[in-house]
Computed example of a mutant assay.
Amino acid sequence: MKITISLLSLFILIVGCIFLQIFLSKQQNKWLGRILPIITFSFSVLMTIICLLSFMAGTPILQVLIVLLLVFVLHNIPTIILCVIYKVCRKKMSVNIQL
């Protein structure tokens, strides 16, 4: 039962963030729509640094680089999604203004 509630809470949080991004992207101030992507990008950099600091000495450098790259790329998936939402909303606003 707890897993269901956690998944439901996560789903509500994700949908809420998407709607918030759409709302912020449609505002006149273009920087409002960039807030969430900046936050998620900062989080991905922070997680990469934490991952780097958690490696023990003696770990092969290639393994460390692969793990860091994977951590950075996987944590930037939300950033990419939010940036796409931003671009689509701004493009629609631009088309509507031109009409």
Rank of each mutant, 00 (worst) to 15 (best):
T48P: 04
L68T: 03
K91A: 13
T59E: 02
K91G: 10
I77N: 07
I12A: 12
I12H: 06
I97C: 13
N76R: 03
C17A: 09
A57W: 09
S6W: 09
V84G: 04
K26A: 07
T59D: 01
K91D: 12
N96D: 02
I81T: 07
L13Y: 07
T48N: 07
M56C: 08
K30W: 02
C51I: 15
I3E: 14
G16H: 03
C17G: 06
I39A: 11
I35N: 00
F72T: 11
I14Q: 08
L8T: 11
V64I: 12
S54K: 06
S44T: 05
N29H: 05
F55L: 10
F11V: 14
T48I: 06
Q21K: 04
S9Y: 11
L20K: 11
K2C: 13
I61R: 02
I80L: 13
F55A: 09
V71M: 15
I3C: 10
L74H: 14
S54F: 05
V84Q: 03
T4R: 13
Q63E: 10
V15H: 06
L69P: 06
T40S: 08
L10S: 04
P60L: 11
N96P: 00
T48E: 06
L13F: 11
T79Y: 04
S54C: 01
I81D: 01
L62C: 08
R90A: 01
K91N: 15
F11M: 12
F41G: 02
Q27W: 00
V64W: 05
S6I: 08
Q98T: 15
I61F: 03
L10T: 03
I3G: 08
M47H: 07
V73H: 03
C51A: 14
I39C: 09
L13P: 03
L62Y: 09
F41I: 05
S54G: 04
L53G: 04
